[in-house]
Simulated scan of single mutants.
Amino acid sequence: MFLAFKEMKRAKLRYILLSLIMISILFLVFFMTGLANGLSFADSSSLQKIKADYIVTNEEAEGAVINSELTKEQLNEIGSTLEAPSSPLTLTMSTVTGKANQKDTDMIYFSVDPNKYGDIAVTEGKNIGEIKDNEVLVNENFKEDGYELNDQLVDESTDKTMTIAGFIENQTYSFLPVVYSDIDSEIQPVQGSEIMYNAVVYNGTKTNIEGYDTSTNDEIVQSMPGYSETQGSFNVMKAFMFIISAFVSTVFFYVLTIQKTNQFGILKAMGATTSYISKSIVTQVLLLTLISLSVSVLAVAGMAQVLPEGIPFQASVSLVLGTGVLFIILNLAGSLLSLYKVTKIDPLEAIGRSE
């Protein structure tokens, strides 16, 4: 410990520069991870929060709810096969308008049977089981467009009027705010002459039905068009940043070790053990990593406060801890190269070179 702090105090600029590099890389890792999580949540939060254990879709859709189509006959067939109460689910994209001072809002209907669908987390107004006629529940960001409880909405596709009966939180699909409606209210536009449904949702045990796919919420999210590809791109970028950071740290300390081969040899000749010198290097790596982590976390937290509301960003405590632990492990693993070099230093050879 003494040797580690003494050296860092003597070569402040060198270690400050390395810390800045590590802080910059960590900041990018945290920011990109938070952005990836935010994009993932804004893309699929409504599917993640569906009040059901399983979602049934047609086989051709391969788990993508938006691509699934079920007729009334198929809906009845699925319902008669399931042992638990079920609700149909229809997703319909549209645009609604309000008063003159309210913006037109692109949105997506989640139409369900309110009597068989579970309660939703409501921030204001009625819950799904209490709505009637043409009442709907809308996502909180409708308030940003000037809407309030009991305001009227007009669907541009059907000219039908709805009443905002409640507000729900963090319910979006493909970055569009979700509007929950009664599937029997016929608010959502009808495609063709026949009403088509996207899925059947239910709670209970998994029931495999021939000709249909039965999926969990997580599986449905992973099957969203473009979801896996987007998350995969972010994961590759994060992995490369971790590798680059670990490489920079490893090379820096290895070069320092080579430059100090003479000094380490003299220390060994004076009685310092390999373990003592190794502890000094590990202490420096751990200390610089912890400092870089702390500063980068504070920087990301500050950045999150000033980001515009339109930019989805989510950085949880578990995310920060998991990323931090992984970064520490990678840097400590990289220091093994320097430790190996220390074990190979010959005190007599070092003394001979110093003469």
Rank of each mutant, 00 (worst) to 15 (best):
S86C: 10
S174Q: 15
E135T: 09
A84M: 10
N127R: 09
I23A: 03
Y180L: 11
I183G: 02
M93Y: 08
S228W: 00
T274I: 11
E349V: 14
K279E: 05
T207N: 06
V306S: 06
T205Y: 02
I281D: 02
L286W: 07
G166Y: 12
A246K: 06
F234P: 02
L332K: 10
S87H: 03
E83Y: 02
M162H: 07
Q284I: 03
Y197D: 04
E186Q: 10
F240N: 05
Y173D: 03
Y197S: 02
E69C: 01
L332P: 11
G192I: 04
K51H: 06
I120Y: 01
I21F: 13
T343Q: 15
V96Q: 06
N170D: 14
L348T: 08
L70S: 04
D184L: 07
L47S: 00
D218K: 06
Q284W: 03
I120M: 13
F240T: 09
Y212H: 10
S316Y: 10
V297C: 08
L89D: 05
N37C: 04
Q152K: 15
L290T: 13
G226W: 00
I21Y: 03
S354Y: 09
L326I: 12
V136W: 05
V190C: 02
F327H: 09
N127Y: 07
Q314P: 00
K341D: 11
P225M: 04
F264H: 06
V154P: 02
K341A: 14
K126P: 09
V179K: 05
I164H: 07
T81P: 00
P114F: 12
L75V: 07
E186D: 14
V201R: 00
L91F: 02
S223M: 01
T161A: 13
D218I: 05
